[in-house]
Amino acid sequence: MFHFFSNPQNVLHLSSRVLGVGLAMLLAGIYGAYLYDGHLSIVALVSLHAMTIVGPTLLKIGYVMRLLAQHRLSKPLAGALA
Results as ranks from 00 to 15, higher is better:
residue 51 M to A: 15
residue 1 M to Y: 02
residue 73 L to W: 07
residue 36 Y to V: 03
residue 14 L to E: 06
residue 39 H to K: 11
residue 23 L to H: 06
residue 50 A to C: 02
residue 59 L to D: 07
residue 43 V to N: 07
residue 19 L to K: 15
residue 6 S to Q: 13
residue 35 L to N: 00
residue 35 L to G: 01
residue 19 L to G: 07
residue 11 V to E: 09
residue 6 S to M: 09
residue 38 G to D: 14
residue 32 G to C: 09
residue 24 A to H: 04
residue 59 L to H: 01
residue 22 G to Q: 08
residue 45 L to D: 12
residue 13 H to L: 13
residue 74 S to H: 14
residue 78 A to V: 02
residue 65 M to K: 02
residue 21 V to L: 15
residue 57 T to E: 09
residue 24 A to E: 03
residue 8 P to D: 10
residue 43 V to R: 08
residue 41 S to I: 08
residue 64 V to D: 06
residue 65 M to T: 04
residue 8 P to C: 09
residue 46 V to G: 02
residue 10 N to W: 12
residue 21 V to T: 15
residue 66 R to W: 09
residue 30 I to M: 10
residue 13 H to V: 11
residue 60 K to R: 13
residue 6 S to F: 02
residue 2 F to H: 00
residue 52 T to E: 11
residue 75 K to S: 10
residue 21 V to M: 14
residue 15 S to M: 06
residue 9 Q to G: 02
residue 53 I to K: 04
residue 3 H to I: 07
residue 29 G to V: 03
residue 54 V to H: 12
residue 44 A to G: 06
residue 82 A to C: 04
residue 29 G to T: 03
residue 22 G to W: 00
residue 27 L to R: 06
residue 72 R to K: 14
residue 3 H to R: 12
residue 80 A to N: 05
residue 49 H to I: 10
residue 20 G to P: 04
residue 27 L to V: 10
residue 71 H to V: 06
residue 45 L to F: 00
residue 34 Y to P: 01
residue 54 V to T: 14
residue 48 L to W: 05
residue 10 N to D: 08
residue 29 G to L: 01
